[in-house]
């Protein structure tokens, strides 16, 4: 891998440091940010509180999307009932008004929940760029353990401060188990 890179054949995606506990990774991510790196990502087998903030990720956006979806679902559900009973098939039952809105509330509510849940998951997957059949981090053999018990920090080559040797030196200074190159 190193030889081919020396001839300029293979681009590298970044440098990856492996840690064996979440606290070291969190500390490392904070140090990397302090050192001025901004294009990086951390990979963990479980959600770690504060890690997303440590790598400079602020807004999830998902809650706004779900709120909009909920409004849309509720409006749609209510309008469906209203349209069915007032416009499409007006039919007086027990002397109630055609627009008997209290009876529409259950369907309005269910439509709200249905639409927002579907949009929440699809939105989460889309914002995450999933499904994604290929990603360079999987080229690293040790990365198999990112879904088991190891914690990884990857500084990406597109970072303006990225320099193969300097960044490697920096990552080594964080006392990881190992620093690896990620082929792109």
């Amino acid at each position: 891998m190193l030889e081919t890179r020396a001839t300029g054949q293979v681009e590298i995606y970044g440098l990856m440091a492996e840690f064996d506990n979440p606290e070291s990774l969190l500390a490392a991510a904070e140090r990397a940010r302090e050192a001025g790196y901004c294009e990086m990502d951390a990979y963990t087998p479980l959600p770690i509180e504060g890690l997303a903030e440590a790598i400079g990720f602020r807004r999830t956006l998902i809650e706004k999307i779900v709120f909009a979806a909920g409004l849309l679902g509720a409006t749609g559900g209510f309008m469906l009932c209203w349209w069915m009973t007032v416009v499409a098939y007006p039919h007086i039952v027990a002397g109630r008004p055609l627009n008997s809105w209290p009876a529409y509330i259950p369907i309005t509510f269910e439509s709200m929940v249905l639409v927002s849940c579907i949009v929440a998951v699809i939105g989460m997957l889309m914002l995450n760029g999933l499904p994604q059949p290929y990603h360079p981090v999987f080229n690293v053999k040790e990365f198999e353990r990112a879904s088991r018990d190891r914690f990884f920090l990857c500084i990406e080559a597109r970072d303006p401060r990225f320099h193969t040797d300097a960044t490697r030196e920096f990552l080594e200074s964080l006392k990881p188990l190992e620093v690896m190159e990620v082929e792109s």
């Binding site: 991510a29 990502d41 951390a42 990979y43 963990t44 087998p45 959600p47 770690i48 890690l51 997303a52 440590a54 790598i55 990720f57 999830t60 956006l61 998902i62 809650e63 779900v66 909920g70 929940v113 927002s116 849940c117 929440a120 998951v121 939105g123 989460m124 914002l127 995450n128 999933l130 499904p131 994604q132 059949p133 290929y134 990603h135 981090v137 999987f138 990365f143 990112a146 879904s147």
Partner: peptide, 22 residues
């Protein structure tokens, strides 16, 4: 293609919480 990225986890947890709330 889930890879446990911290960004993904952040959105994932928010989504999971929203699903629970709904």
């Amino acid at each position: 293609g889930w890879r446990g990225s911290a960004r993904h986890w952040a959105r994932y947890q928010k989504t999971y919480l929203l699903l629970a709330g709904l």
